[in-house]
Every structure is written in structure tokens, then in C-alpha cells.
């Protein structure tokens, strides 16, 4: 029996060391579970990016708490030149204002923004509402319900900002993702949803407005929020690459060059086209300024809607 216990202990040790083993390769943290929308783009981004850098990379999914767990892991690796994060908009520009996190917008070395898709305000095609004006009017008697992919996500913020800045009467019902929210919209449990072109194209939806500073190609008859007489609201679903603070300028430059080359590569372009991801490259300085601006704007929305802690 004793030997059995020893072998048990030995095997248990192997298990834990396996998990704790840190590789020398470049680690790309994706703060979502494998197979999600962000993960797919990250995994298509990775081969060309690694090739450009001349390293072997491993994509590691660290999911949980609205993508902040994985993001925190990048922020906490200060000075480590072998870890980067492929980050969604929410983890960088919304979550730090929502709750106490071990990081803020200043905790990273910004590398690049890769893709960005503007969001649309949408209703079901089966509804008879065809304009934002009509939506506002019909909401006066009985407030509408708008869905989101969770509290503090971009679909939530975009609608919260719209409600604060217009006469629209609508209340929030969060779901566990865009899919369940679409199910609810199809069953008329909710009436409004804000999301990207991918969602708009795949379901029977009607766009009423776009959260961007100009009309979007292919949707020329969809007005921007500003044209509807509201303050300009800019909401887009974007992704980008960040590294921890404290890495050398040389390393940061390497990353930035590799990222630019990857985003401009035919392979990534073909993929982005298929996945309806809109390539929107921003270099290190522009990306940093962009995140800072979005962070401030989102914070304002959260404060107006009474969502900050």
C-alpha cells in the first residue's frame, strides 16, 4: 500500500509541474476560451506574426471574468519580453472602470490595433419599426427592452449611451453572449440590440443607425447617430495586441513591425474577409492614444448610466 501512495504522489507532482511549466517560446494570451470569435482571429494572426518575428509561439487561452483574468496575466508579467496579449476592446477600455482590477490602461506597452468593426443599432426584421425616430416614439408608452452579451459589454454601453443621450425609453436585459441574445430577439423577448455587421448579416435584423462618425460602406442608407440629432457616439468592436510594461524599446519595435507586416499580409487579409473582420491597423502611438480616448469615453457613459463602482 505504501508504494501505491508514493506512486500516487509522484504522478500528482507530474501533473502540477506540467501545468506550471513555463515555455521559452513567445506566449500569446487570448483572454477567451478556445474557439470564440476573438480566439479565431488571434489564431489566424499567430502564424504570420511568429514567422515575422522568427519565433515559435503558443496561443494560450486564459478565460474568465469578462476577459480580465487573461489580460491581468499580461499586465502582471512586467518586463517579460516573451508574452503578449491578443486583447478585445472591453478588457482594455471598459472593465478597468467597472471594477477593481490589477491593471489599468497604463499597465501595457501598446503594440497595434488589428481589426475594428463599427456597431449598428438593430431591431428584428419582423418588427414594423423602420427608423430611429419611430423607435423613440413607440417607446414612450411602454419602454422597450434591449439585449446585450453581458453587463458592461460594448452592446450594453452603446445602448446605455443612446438611452442617456436621446428620448428613447429602453431597459437593459443582459444575456450570456450574442447568440442567446439573438434567440431572445427572435422570440421578441427583447426588441433592440447593438452589435456588429457579422451579427446583422447572419440574422434577420434591420439596422436603424450606426455608431460611427461616417456612414459605412455597403450600408449607405443607414444614418450615423450624429445625423439623428444625438451627440456623436462612436462604438466599435476592436481587437489589438499589447505587451507588458517594462520591455525594451527594441523588443517593442520588433513586435510593432511584425504586427504591421502580419495585418498587411495576404493570408490575414483573406481570413479577415471571410470572417467579416474589418482590418483597421493602428501603430503603437496611435493605438495607445486610441485606447486612452475610448477608456475616457466609456467611463463617461458608465458614469452617466450609473454603472461605475
Amino acid at each position: 500500500m505504501k508504494s501505491l501512495r508514493y506512486s500516487l504522489a509522484a504522478l500528482a507532482l507530474i501533473a502540477t509541474t506540467h501545468a506550471a511549466m513555463a515555455a521559452d517560446n513567445l506566449e500569446i494570451i487570448v483572454p477567451f476560451a478556445a474557439g470564440g470569435a476573438t480566439d479565431i482571429v488571434a489564431r489566424s494572426f499567430e502564424p504570420t506574426f511568429s514567422q515575422q518575428l522568427g519565433v515559435t509561439s503558443v496561443v494560450r487561452n486564459v478565460a474568465g471574468a469578462s476577459a480580465t483574468v487573461g489580460t491581468a496575466e499580461v499586465a502582471n508579467s512586467e518586463g517579460n519580453p516573451n508574452i503578449i496579449g491578443y486583447e478585445p476592446a472591453g478588457a482594455l477600455s471598459i472593465q478597468p472602470s467597472l471594477k477593481k482590477l490589477p491593471y489599468g490602461p497604463d499597465s501595457f506597452t501598446y503594440i497595434c490595433r488589428t481589426v475594428s468593426n463599427p456597431m449598428f443599432l438593430m431591431v428584428s426584421k419582423s418588427s414594423d419599426i423602420t427608423s430611429f425616430q419611430q423607435l423613440v416614439e413607440e417607446s414612450q408608452d411602454q419602454p422597450f427592452l434591449y439585449g446585450s452579451s453581458g453587463p458592461g459589454t460594448l452592446p450594453h454601453l452603446a445602448m446605455a449611451a443612446t438611452v442617456v443621450n436621446s428620448d428613447l425609453k429602453a431597459e437593459h436585459v443582459p444575456y450570456s453572449g450574442s447568440g442567446p441574445a439573438m434567440n431572445a430577439l427572435a422570440g421578441n423577448e427583447i426588441q433592440i440590440m447593438a452589435d456588429t455587421e457579422t451579427i446583422l448579416e447572419n440574422y434577420d435584423l434591420r439596422p436603424l443607425a450606426v455608431f460611427a462618425d461616417h456612414r459605412v460602406e455597403g450600408y449607405d442608407d443607414v444614418p450615423t447617430i450624429e445625423e439623428l440629432g444625438l451627440p456623436a457616439l462612436d462604438f466599435a468592436v476592436w481587437q489589438g495586441v499589447v505587451a507588458p510594461k517594462g520591455i525594451s524599446d527594441e523588443r517593442a519595435k520588433q513586435y510593432a513591425e511584425a504586427c504591421k507586416a502580419t495585418v498587411e499580409s495576404d493570408k490575414f487579409k483573406t481570413f479577415a474577409d471571410k470572417a467579416k473582420a474589418n482590418i483597421a491597423y493602428l501603430g503603437p502611438d496611435d493605438f495607445k492614444a486610441f485606447v486612452q480616448k475610448r477608456f475616457e469615453a466609456n467611463k463617461q457613459v458608465l458614469e452617466d448610466a450609473g454603472l461605475t463602482q
Binding site: L4, S7, A10, A15
Partner: peptide, 11 residues
């Protein structure tokens, strides 16, 4: 041996 089986399960 049971030790390996159980150890494997733990692992």
C-alpha cells in the same frame, strides 16, 4: 497496479 491507476486519475 492500483497506485498507477489512481495516480493517473489524479494527474
Amino acid at each position: 497496479p492500483l497506485g498507477f491507476v489512481m495516480g493517473g486519475i489524479v494527474m
